[in-house]
Amino acid sequence: MINFEEELKKFHLSLEVEDAEEAIYNQDLTDMADIFVKMIKDMDHETTVHNESKRQIEE
């Protein structure tokens, strides 16, 4: 049995044309590729730091 009140809660206000610009700016465009690249870069950075600290210890 459909509950009208509950179903009504699932409907949300539509964005008006004037609000489209703000919506576009606020949209989170981060994708898996970004996350992957960031992970790779972070890993490279950690590796570099680790290698430098190891070299300093050896020296």
Binding site: L29, T30, D31, M32, A33, D34
Partner: peptide
Amino acid sequence: QSLKFNKN
């Protein structure tokens, strides 16, 4: 889903 993997 497609755009979550590749926004481009």
